[in-house]
């Protein structure tokens, strides 16, 4: 056991993957010499050389487009878009090229690439540096989307994403980079598409992912004081998502809340709620309630952002509502 930070777990996973497979390359803005704006790629240049660890110009469309071509030609590129917001510039490469290549070319091969996208607010980064846009990618057939919340999963999902033969969007939450956890020395890869029960409970299920996991756990603590035992499921993967695990939990608790930091409307929670209303209909003993950000851009000022981010109180209220 050792104490490890989330950012170091990502770094360790990248390093281990590069050591294990010479076809893994890493490139993006300021990721080599500077070690990345958040330090995720620190030390990789020194360890693996300028051929495999490259700083790029500020050209998001070409960074991701080049990853597609590199993946088609035998590399396993891991590229970083400095803030998830900037991925809007690179959408063609992700949506029209990477996601479709395997299908469109008749399964001749896939595009084994990872696009790392730091998302999330809470640091007064404002409307263009704080968004949670993961639902965009979960909507695109051909993409996988993962979002680790724990330090162990940061390592395990990074390894799994790099090993995956298909394009994977790895969503990292900026607020979690500094998170510390005791983890085993020998961390395993985590299977993409498998959720985990972060806290068992019998009265209601909260499905969540990313930084909202910790907000949900805080809400569960509050509710435990009221005699309500909430089960908290950390989805870990958004596409594919662990429908079976959520249904299994719902079949025990009969109440479902879906919570995330992303805007509530048309979000990941909408999909989970709709799907469970379908396949889990007869298990429901209360309305499915979603908790997400309001339908507005992420604001800058501290007070505004506090109002914007879903907090434990809102999640607890949602649980109370489904229990009413």
């Amino acid at each position: 056991m050792a104490e490890l930070r989330y950012v170091r777990a990502l770094n360790q996973a990248l390093s281990d993957a590069m050591a294990a497979d010479p076809s893994v390359v890493v490139f993006g803005e300021d990721i080599a010499a500077a070690g990345g704006p958040f330090g995720v790629t620190r030390g990789l240049l020194e360890a693996y050389g300028a051929d495999r660890v490259r700083d790029t110009p500020i050209s998001e469309a070409t960074i991701v487009g080049a990853a597609v071509g590199a993946a088609m030609t035998g590399l396993k590129p891991v590229v970083e878009i400095m803030f998830m917001d900037f991925v809007a510039i690179a959408m063609d490469a992700i949506v029209n090229q990477a996601a479709k290549a395997r299908f469109m070319f008749g399964g001749q091969g896939s595009v084994p690439m990872v696009v790392r996208l730091p998302h999330g607010g809470g640091v007064s980064a404002g409307p263009q540096h704080s968004q949670c846009l993961e639902a965009w990618f979960a909507h695109i057939p051909g993409l996988k989307v993962v979002c680790p919340a724990s330090v162990a999963d940061a390592y395990g999902l990074m390894r799994a994403a790099i090993d995956d033969p298909d394009p994977v969007i790895l969503v990292e939450n900026k607020a979690l980079y500094a998170r510390k956890e005791d983890v085993p020395d020998d961390l395993p890869a985590v299977e993409i598409g498998k959720a985990r029960i972060a806290r068992p409970g019998r009265d209601a299920t909260i499905v969540t992912y990313g930084a909202a996991l910790y907000t949900a756990l805080e809400a569960a603590d509050t509710l435990a004081g009221e005699g309500v035992e909430v089960e908290v499921i950390d989805l870990r993967s958004l596409q594919p998502w662990d429908e079976a695990a959520v249904l299994e939990s719902l079949s025990r608790t009969h109440r479902l809340v879906v919570a995330h930091e992303a805007v509530e409307a048309f979000g990941v929670g909408a999909e989970i709620a709709a799907r469970m209303a379908d396949i889990g209909f007869d298990e429901l003993d209360g309305p499915i309630v979603r908790v997400g950000a309001p339908f507005m851009p992420v604001p800058f000022a501290k007070t505004l952002e506090q109002g914007y981010l879903p907090d434990a109180g809102r999640i607890a209220d949602a649980v109370r509502k489904t229990l009413a």
């Binding site: 009969h254 209909f281 007869d282 298990e283 429901l284 003993d285 209360g286």
Partner: peptide, 17 residues
């Protein structure tokens, strides 16, 4: 005349099952 006092039963899906 109000229909809300009619026959519709409000029940959760689990309760119905």
């Amino acid at each position: 005349l109000p229909a809300s006092t009619g026959d519709r039963v409000r029940a959760t899906p689990l309760a119905r099952r």
